[in-house]
Design a protein around this nucleic acid. Structure first.
Length: 207
DNA sequence: CCCTGATTCGC
DNA sequence: GCGAATCAGG
């Protein structure tokens, strides 16, 4: 593959939109992210920034978002893999099937997320699941596991690490479980146990 | 480990 | 000009 005019155009557009080199490479096809980065540099449109002239030359930022929380939530449905963005899924008191988000994600290339990491928790902490909401077995299991938590930071999370938050985000004593996550699930075995509960079980346990 | 972009350098 | 290999970093 060679850098035809329209391929270069696509490159410029996507780079301008803040797409990563690897994403651009996938879109173009036939090239690696290295090729893309190399081209970006040769075109001289790598990083500008640096105060003054930046304002003049800057292409037009994705624009500030009016409603932070809402906007962030709306941007959630990623193309295929949410890149790094952790799909903030705090274990609320009632970690319901999360709106039953079981959609096969058919979207080919809907919205892109202009490199904007999603911050863990906002102001009010969602109450941690209370003991009477969880089976004794699962609870014991979780307590045991949390002692072995890898205590990862947000950046260290991957698709295969448990994203269960532990501690108070407002303090230093906050981290993510980080143990091996169940295939396709956001949490490790123990946390999956408390996060995903069958309706029947919940009902039985309620008073 | 996974991913980013940056740089180098033989082609 | 091109891009794989490599580097530096989150």
């Amino acid at each position: 593959m060679s850098w035809t005019d329209d391929r270069v155009e696509t490159l410029k557009r996507m780079w301008g939109e803040g797409q990563s080199a690897s994403q651009i490479a996938k879109e173009l096809g036939g090239v690696t992210r290295n090729a893309v980065i190399g081209k970006v540099h040769r075109l001289g449109l790598s990083n500008r920034v640096e105060g003054e002239e930046a304002a003049a030359a800057a292409p037009v930022a994705p624009a500030p978002e009016p409603a932070p929380a809402a906007a962030a939530a709306a941007a959630a449905p990623a193309t295929d893999r949410p890149a790094r963005a952790v799909k903030a899924e705090p274990p609320a008191a009632t970690p319901e099937p999360e709106t039953a988000t079981a959609e096969p994600e058919p979207a080919p290339q809907p919205v892109f997320i202009p490199r904007r990491p999603i911050v863990p928790a906002g102001q009010p902490l969602p109450p941690q699941p209370s003991a009477n909401e969880i089976s004794p077995e699962a609870l014991a299991s979780v307590r045991e596991v949390e002692k072995r938590a890898r205590k990862l930071t947000l950046m260290e999370l991957t698709e295969r690490t448990c994203k269960w938050p532990i501690g108070d985000p407002a303090t230093e004593k906050f981290w993510f479980c980080g143990l091996p996550a169940q295939a396709g699930k956001p949490y490790c075995e123990a946390h999956v146990g408390v996060a995903f509960q069958p309706m029947s079980a919940r009902r039985d346990r309620r008073r």
